[in-house]
Lab assay of single mutants.
Amino acid sequence: KKYKIKVYVKDKKTKKWKKIKEIEVDTKEEALEAIKKLPPNYEVKIVP
């Protein structure tokens, strides 16, 4: 079972969220580790 991490950042001009990358991992633990490495201003969604 794979997890997709969708990473969004808020556009300063439009104030809208835009997706900047998608990370695919195998476990939820890996997903949480990957999220920890991202800057705090990123919004993250984990999709099972």
Rank of each mutant, 00 (worst) to 15 (best):
K1W: 11
K1L: 14
K1F: 15
K1H: 14
K1D: 10
K1E: 10
K1G: 12
K1S: 15
K1M: 13
K2G: 10
K2W: 08
K2F: 11
K2A: 09
K2E: 05
Y3T: 02
Y3V: 05
Y3L: 06
Y3C: 05
Y3A: 01
Y3K: 00
Y3W: 13
K4A: 07
K4S: 13
K4T: 14
K4H: 08
I5Y: 08
I5T: 00
I5K: 01
I5A: 01
I5L: 11
K6E: 14
K6F: 14
K6R: 07
K6Q: 11
K6I: 15
K6D: 09
K6T: 12
V7H: 00
V7C: 08
V7Y: 04
V7I: 09
V7M: 05
V7G: 00
V7A: 03
V7E: 00
Y8E: 00
Y8C: 04
Y8F: 06
Y8K: 00
Y8L: 02
V9Y: 08
V9R: 15
V9C: 01
V9M: 10
V9I: 14
V9K: 15
V9Q: 09
V9S: 06
V9F: 06
K10N: 04
K10S: 03
K10M: 09
K10P: 05
K10R: 14
D11G: 05
D11H: 06
D11M: 06
D11N: 15
D11A: 06
D11T: 05
K12E: 15
K12L: 14
K12Q: 13
K12V: 13
K12A: 07
K13P: 05
K13S: 11
K13I: 14
K13Y: 14
K13R: 15
K13W: 12
K13H: 10
K13M: 08
K13F: 13
T14N: 08
T14Q: 05
T14L: 06
T14D: 06
K15E: 10
K15Y: 03
K15S: 13
K15N: 13
K15T: 05
K15F: 05
K16N: 05
K16C: 13
K16R: 12
K16S: 05
K16I: 06
W17P: 02
W17T: 02
W17D: 00
W17N: 02
W17C: 03
W17Q: 02
W17I: 03
W17M: 04
W17F: 07
K18V: 08
K18A: 03
K18T: 07
K18W: 08
K19F: 11
K19T: 05
K19R: 05
K19V: 14
K19M: 12
K19A: 04
K19Y: 12
K19Q: 07
K19H: 05
I20Q: 03
I20F: 08
I20D: 02
I20G: 01
K21C: 07
K21P: 01
K21F: 08
K21S: 14
K21W: 06
K21E: 09
K21G: 06
E22I: 06
E22Y: 03
E22P: 00
E22V: 12
E22S: 05
E22F: 03
E22R: 00
E22L: 04
I23P: 00
I23T: 04
I23K: 02
I23F: 13
I23M: 13
I23A: 02
I23R: 02
E24G: 14
E24S: 10
E24T: 14
E24F: 15
E24D: 15
E24R: 06
V25I: 07
V25P: 00
V25M: 10
V25E: 01
D26Y: 08
D26A: 11
D26H: 12
D26I: 06
D26E: 12
T27N: 07
T27D: 05
T27Y: 03
T27R: 02
T27C: 02
T27F: 04
K28F: 15
K28D: 07
K28Q: 14
K28S: 07
K28C: 09
K28M: 15
K28L: 14
K28T: 10
K28R: 11
E29R: 07
E29N: 08
E29C: 13
E29K: 11
E29W: 12
E30I: 04
E30S: 05
E30H: 06
E30N: 04
E30R: 03
E30C: 03
E30A: 09
E30D: 10
E30G: 06
A31Y: 07
A31P: 00
A31R: 01
A31V: 12
A31S: 03
A31H: 01
A31N: 00
L32S: 07
L32D: 11
L32P: 00
L32Q: 14
L32N: 08
L32M: 12
L32H: 12
E33N: 10
E33V: 08
E33L: 09
E33S: 09
E33Y: 04
A34P: 00
A34C: 09
A34W: 11
A34D: 02
A34Y: 15
A34K: 09
A34L: 12
A34Q: 13
I35P: 00
I35V: 12
I35R: 04
I35M: 08
K36Q: 12
K36C: 15
K36R: 12
K36L: 11
K36S: 13
K36T: 13
K36M: 14
K36H: 11
K37V: 09
K37W: 05
K37T: 11
K37C: 05
K37Y: 06
K37H: 13
L38T: 01
L38V: 04
L38S: 01
L38Y: 13
L38R: 01
P39Y: 06
P39C: 03
P39R: 06
P39M: 04
P40R: 06
P40C: 05
N41A: 10
N41T: 15
N41I: 09
N41K: 11
N41H: 15
N41E: 15
Y42F: 12
Y42S: 10
Y42T: 13
Y42R: 13
Y42I: 05
Y42V: 13
E43M: 14
E43F: 13
E43R: 15
E43W: 14
E43K: 15
E43L: 10
E43S: 13
E43Q: 15
E43C: 13
E43A: 15
E43H: 15
V44M: 06
V44R: 01
V44W: 12
V44L: 05
V44D: 00
K45R: 14
K45G: 05
K45F: 06
K45Y: 07
K45E: 07
I46L: 09
I46D: 01
I46Y: 05
I46Q: 01
I46A: 01
I46C: 11
I46E: 01
I46F: 09
I46T: 03
I46W: 13
V47R: 07
V47Y: 15
V47A: 05
V47F: 10
V47K: 04
V47T: 12
V47E: 11
V47L: 08
P48Y: 15
P48K: 13
P48N: 10
P48M: 15
P48F: 14
